[in-house]
Design a protein around this nucleic acid. Structure first.
Lengths: 109, 109
DNA sequence: CTAATCCGCAACCAAATAGTTGCGCATTTA
DNA sequence: TAAATGCGCAACTATTTGGTTGCGGATTAG
């Protein structure tokens, strides 16, 4: 339903978890990191971390490249931007609505 | 885990559903709307719509006021801004990291 | 007053989520 | 070569989620 919202919904759903936001925070520091590295300070298993990274990958928020026996993950900031743009649009539409309301009120006798 | 990310996670989780994004889109048009009104064109029951609105309310994305027998919902754009700010921070940190990397590379002999 | 409308509560259900463990394979390291 | 490391696959579990239906109470409309 409302097919136009499905893509951003996937994006926001991927962002809707504290652990994943933490991973994104780490990846926003710039360097690529492996699964074990990313799960270092987390109280969950390596496989749990891998699953979270899969979600981020499916949402397009990260990119991954194999290097030897390691899987390296890096942020894809374009997708972060895309999510942000959606919110900006909502804000703009809201501001526009406020503006029209103001105009309407002022035009009343 | 990573308690600092819990608040934004709730926010993004609330945004992580196409139906709810649709509701937010409607509410961004400016005027307050009732539950029945918001569910008018949706292929789900009134109660399902009400539950979605509860999620948005818990996340702070909407405000509600009772008026007679109706429950009127309106957007709270401050919260939309808050979510957007989190994404902006990630982008900024990433840009900063890129900058530092560039400086480092250029300083290499 | 009666009928229609809007809502809240509760029980229930199926599917998705977040997590676990165990095992085996590939790649490094000692 | 042998041991250790990093990963993937699979099965299993508990909780959350998105949805339903049924019912009763309050408010508005006829």
């Amino acid at each position: 339903m409302l097919r136009g919202e499905e893509a951003p919904a996937r994006l926001f759903a991927a962002l809707g978890d504290a652990t994943r936001l933490g991973l994104i925070g780490r990846l926003s520091e710039g360097s690529e990191r492996s699964i074990v590295q990313l799960g270092q300070d987390l109280p969950i298993s390596r496989q749990a971390v891998a699953k979270h990274l899969d979600v981020l990958l499916d949402a397009g928020l990260v990119r991954r490249t194999r290097q030897g026996r390691e899987m390296l993950f890096a942020l894809r900031p374009e997708m972060v931007t895309e999510a942000r743009d959606w919110l900006t649009e909502v804000e703009n539409q809201w501001e526009g609505a406020l503006g029209r309301l103001k105009t309407f009120v002022e035009s009343q006798p």
